[in-house]
């Protein structure tokens, strides 16, 4: 009998510490599903960042390395260069990737490092309690933007579109943006992850999937409101889809 639904092998059967409505749990799950489908559990290594997902190693059932805040792409570089036949997943939040680790992600992408970055963008610092992130939307409230993000008047600058920024670099081969606010987007996002992992295992260049995700706690709303807020505010600013795909033609065909 075919198993229609079950708990992924690569994810431990335990409850997460993530808040109700948080996107990390779903993202963990679809990553684990793809790893199982590709039969890569024994070859997977995740670098979990400083941020709420620092606990990723409690949930993923494969090897992990926990680097300093923002240095995740540098550590992933070291790991993937040593173990090119392994699946290396560089899991990053928006503070980790687009603030303190901007140099590391740009140069890893530019070198065409062959790991996959999973960039979880929830437009806020979660673990430290709701401070403004580089991806916080204009006008969005944060503890460090008490009147909302004010790019000019308060000198807070603008939200950074990371996929579009990295798309200009020749080392990047696959940059996609998904979301986990509803089932359709989750399914699409899982496909992006699969495409990126497959490209990594073929040894193509830098791959990244940005995932728009809810943070109801720090957005100060309930989970239902948060998925709606993401749909209305984030997706309109951060367009979903494959922002850049220069993977080999055969691979693209195969993915479809």
């Amino acid at each position: 009998m075919e198993l229609a639904y079950g708990h992924p092998k690569s994810l431990k059967p335990i409850q997460t510490k993530y808040c109700p409505g948080c996107g990390h749990g779903v993202i963990h799950r679809i990553i684990a599903e793809v790893i199982d489908e590709m039969d890569l559990q024994a070859k997977a290594i995740i670098t979990n960042p400083v941020g709420c997902s620092i606990w990723a190693d409690l949930y993923f059932d494969f090897d992990s390395v926990q680097p300093a805040h923002g240095r995740t792409p540098a550590a992933s570089t070291g790991i993937k260069r040593m173990l090119p036949d392994h699946l290396v997943i560089c899991y990053q939040g928006d503070g980790d990737l687009a603030a303190i680790g901007t140099a590391e992600i740009i140069h890893a992408a530019n070198r065409g490092e062959k790991f996959t970055t999973i960039f979880v963008n929830n437009a806020i610092y979660g673990m430290t309690g709701g401070q403004m992130a580089p991806t916080t939307l204009v006008g969005q409230y944060a503890t460090t933007a008490p009147e909302g993000r004010d790019p000019i008047g308060a000198g807070m600058g603008y939200p950074i579109k990371v996929c579009e920024l990295l798309a200009t670099l020749e080392g990047t081969r696959y940059l996609a943006r998904g979301a986990v606010n509803n089932a359709v987007n989750i399914r699409k996002t899982k496909n992006y992850i699969r495409r990126a992992f497959e490209a990594q295992m073929r040894g193509e260049g830098f791959t990244m999937v940005e995932i728009l995700s809810q943070c109801p706690t720090n957005w100060q709303m309930n989970p239902a409101e948060s998925v709606e807020w993401l749909e209305k505010n984030m997706i309109t600013f951060y367009p979903l889809g494959e922002i850049k795909n220069t993977l080999s033609a055969s691979a693209s065909a195969q993915a479809r």
Partner: peptide
Amino acid sequence: RTFIQAESEVAAVNMVYGASSTGVRA
């Protein structure tokens, strides 16, 4: 073998961290 001119000393030492976690001499 692997040689990388890193983007900074910070990145370089964190590359060591990653490489060393795989058990090689870095």
